[in-house]
Amino acid sequence: MSHLFLRSTSTYLAMSKAKPTYIYKLVSFSSPIPEPIPKALPLSELDAASGFMHFSTAAQVPRTLKRFFAEDPSVTILRIDYSKVEEEIKWEDSKGTAPGEMGGEGIFPHIYGRALGSADVESKSVLHRNDGNWDEALKNAESWLVY
């Protein structure tokens, strides 16, 4: 399996056409995930407003983290086995307004019509922002963030 930190553009392009092993749900520190994870988690404000759950592939996590969670001191990331939700996934732009090809530039996995819950979560990790950026946390999570 390819890991998060890609060595070349050609590696990324080859990987982006392949089906992901996992997709990831990033959750702000302001919405802590209960232990144990419940059967249904509440939707985030963004997911509720959008009408679907936003996910990222491993390759998209760094950009999503830095863009939408830049000020969060920590973020919980839920890892979802793609094969278990594949039939529900719609690959679209971040706003859900334009469908796209899996792995396409700016195209993300979305799930409509339901909440995420314990049965969906393969594992979770909490990343902590250090010195104002996410680089060290991402490097430490490299082996866990698998495409």
Results as ranks from 00 to 15, higher is better:
residue 1 M to E: 10
residue 4 L to E: 07
residue 6 L to M: 15
residue 6 L to F: 11
residue 7 R to Y: 05
residue 8 S to N: 04
residue 9 T to W: 10
residue 9 T to N: 11
residue 12 Y to R: 15
residue 13 L to I: 11
residue 13 L to N: 14
residue 13 L to H: 12
residue 13 L to W: 07
residue 15 M to C: 14
residue 15 M to A: 15
residue 17 K to C: 12
residue 18 A to G: 09
residue 18 A to D: 13
residue 20 P to R: 05
residue 21 T to Y: 07
residue 21 T to A: 12
residue 22 Y to N: 02
residue 23 I to E: 02
residue 23 I to K: 04
residue 27 V to P: 01
residue 27 V to M: 08
residue 27 V to L: 06
residue 28 S to W: 01
residue 31 S to N: 14
residue 31 S to C: 12
residue 32 P to H: 04
residue 34 P to V: 11
residue 34 P to H: 06
residue 36 P to D: 07
residue 37 I to G: 01
residue 38 P to H: 02
residue 38 P to F: 02
residue 40 A to W: 07
residue 40 A to T: 13
residue 44 S to Q: 09
residue 45 E to D: 12
residue 46 L to K: 13
residue 46 L to P: 01
residue 46 L to D: 14
residue 47 D to Q: 11
residue 48 A to G: 10
residue 48 A to K: 15
residue 49 A to Q: 14
residue 52 F to R: 07
residue 53 M to E: 11
residue 54 H to W: 04
residue 55 F to L: 11
residue 55 F to N: 03
residue 57 T to Q: 06
residue 58 A to H: 00
residue 59 A to K: 09
residue 60 Q to R: 05
residue 60 Q to K: 12
residue 61 V to A: 00
residue 63 R to Y: 12
residue 65 L to N: 00
residue 66 K to H: 09
residue 67 R to K: 15
residue 68 F to I: 02
residue 70 A to C: 06
residue 70 A to K: 10
residue 70 A to L: 09
residue 70 A to N: 10
residue 70 A to S: 14
residue 72 D to L: 03
residue 72 D to M: 05
residue 74 S to W: 03
residue 76 T to G: 06
residue 76 T to N: 07
residue 77 I to E: 00
residue 77 I to V: 15
residue 78 L to R: 05
residue 78 L to N: 08
residue 79 R to P: 01
residue 79 R to N: 04
residue 79 R to M: 13
residue 81 D to W: 07
residue 82 Y to W: 09
residue 84 K to T: 15
residue 84 K to N: 09
residue 84 K to I: 05
residue 86 E to Y: 02
residue 86 E to Q: 13
residue 87 E to Q: 14
residue 87 E to V: 08
residue 89 I to A: 09
residue 89 I to E: 05
residue 90 K to G: 07
residue 91 W to H: 14
residue 94 S to D: 08
residue 95 K to D: 14
residue 96 G to Y: 11
residue 97 T to Q: 15
residue 98 A to Y: 01
residue 98 A to C: 08
residue 99 P to S: 15
residue 100 G to A: 08
residue 104 G to L: 08
residue 105 E to Y: 12
residue 105 E to L: 14
residue 106 G to K: 04
residue 107 I to Q: 00
residue 108 F to I: 11
residue 108 F to H: 03
residue 108 F to D: 00
residue 109 P to M: 12
residue 110 H to T: 14
residue 110 H to V: 10
residue 110 H to F: 05
residue 111 I to V: 15
residue 113 G to F: 08
residue 113 G to V: 07
residue 113 G to C: 07
residue 113 G to T: 03
residue 114 R to P: 01
residue 114 R to H: 06
residue 115 A to F: 00
residue 116 L to G: 00
residue 117 G to W: 05
residue 119 A to E: 13
residue 120 D to N: 09
residue 120 D to K: 05
residue 120 D to R: 06
residue 121 V to E: 09
residue 123 S to R: 12
residue 123 S to Y: 05
residue 124 K to G: 05
residue 124 K to V: 03
residue 127 L to F: 02
residue 128 H to W: 10
residue 130 N to M: 10
residue 130 N to W: 08
residue 131 D to K: 08
residue 131 D to P: 01
residue 132 G to K: 02
residue 134 W to S: 04
residue 134 W to M: 03
residue 134 W to K: 02
residue 135 D to N: 12
residue 135 D to S: 13
residue 137 A to M: 02
residue 138 L to W: 04
residue 138 L to Q: 01
residue 138 L to K: 04
residue 138 L to D: 02
residue 139 K to N: 09
residue 144 W to F: 12
residue 147 Y to V: 01
residue 147 Y to T: 03
